[in-house]
Design a protein around this nucleic acid. Structure first.
Lengths: 193, 193
DNA sequence: AAGCTAGCGGAGGGTTCCCTCCGGATGCAA
DNA sequence: TTGCATCCGGAGGGAACCCTCCGCTAGCTT
């Protein structure tokens, strides 16, 4: 008997035994920390140490550095997308802005991660899709309401916001001020209001 | 150029003998290539190989990785600042936009470099000063002419543009479109607030 | 409670890179 | 041309990291 045929599933699958699942989770948490701290080149042995497991366990769960990378990334994206729920009740412009603010927080910490994955990755495109289906409706609603210019697409906004967040800001105040400028660029050319 | 005369001692000094100077220059060129290609973690031995010199020569000129890094960075900044000359003849808004476009090209290739130096570096702050003295006058002129909002500073613009450029764009068209949006955000509000 | 097996840890061999050191080569001044 | 201070190249020891392998541990099932 073999394990079921190869899963086309890009996502690493979570193990089934209790202790294994525990290890899997702390590995992801440890990797999140290590990557945030030392960038994408963080030592895998250090990750294992942080997680309190042997290096062998790390490799069993994530055969390559990239697997680990992607697992962390997917986790992050999931949280971000989840946060889009409940915003539909706000006015169109406010809803969009609120979500973009969360997006900023997300990108800020995931700089190194994104850097690696940007090159080429099935994971990345699939996460992109997920992000789009979370945020694009907010954008379209705002455009329909006439509070956002309609000569641009959601992907333009994503690049704009995610890019500017990659810069390092000395203070949250400045970050918000700059974000405000960018958001002003989204408004229609001659909106009163 | 702004700061002529003797540079701060942080700058590696160019050697005096002809062959040594040649090596120094090809090392910087090689490093520029290698860093652009493999990111900040590029192997120093690879840099020496590209430059066609021994590893010893590299270490004699640049005792640490950071020295080499900074030398490349300074070179880049110099070129950028130099490009601000001659823009004073354009109309205020056009001059600013033209320079920001060059700035974009500069940041695009120097991502990895900046990433490293952002943390803490005397060099970085001094280059920052140089960039400011090149670009800030353009900005102030535009503000004085009333074509740029005056509730923001030049450093806000720098962060906005440089950040934006760190994102990766699938096409130059999209990059320019997004840049356009950001620039629109710089204009004064259509209606006074 | 007993057996089966998924899962664990970490030693260890291999690779890559860092950086020092010194005998030999060479530009430059006299 | 000659002398020498400067500069060159790359061998080599050490450190960090990658990843495999296998004897042992401990969940889960019956």
């Amino acid at each position: 008997m073999t394990s079921a045929g190869q899963a086309p599933e890009v996502f690493a699958q979570r193990p089934k035994r209790a202790d294994a699942r525990r290890n899997y989770d702390s590995l992801i948490a440890a990797a999140r920390e290590a990557f945030a701290e030392n960038g994408a080149a963080a030592s895998l042995e250090d990750v294992a140490r942080r997680a309190g497991v042997g290096i062998g366990t790390l490799y069993r769960n994530f055969p390559t550095r990239r697997h680990l990378f992607e697992a962390v990334y997917v986790e992050e994206v999931r949280e971000l997308c989840h946060s889009a729920e409940g915003l539909a009740e706000l006015p169109p412009w406010d809803a969009l802005v609120a979500w973009l603010h969360r997006f900023v927080a997300y990108v800020a910490t995931k700089r190194a991660l994104a850097e690696q994955l940007l090159r080429d990755s099935e994971i990345f495109t699939s996460c992109r899709t997920e992000i789009f289906s979370a945020g694009e409706p907010l954008m379209r609603r705002a455009q329909a309401a006439g509070v956002v210019r309609d000569d641009i697409g959601f992907d333009d906004v994503v690049r704009l916001i995610s890019g500017l967040t990659m810069a390092q800001f000395p203070s949250p105040e400045q970050r918000d001020r700059v974000l405000g400028v960018a958001l002003d660029g989204l408004r229609p050319p001659a909106t009163p209001r």
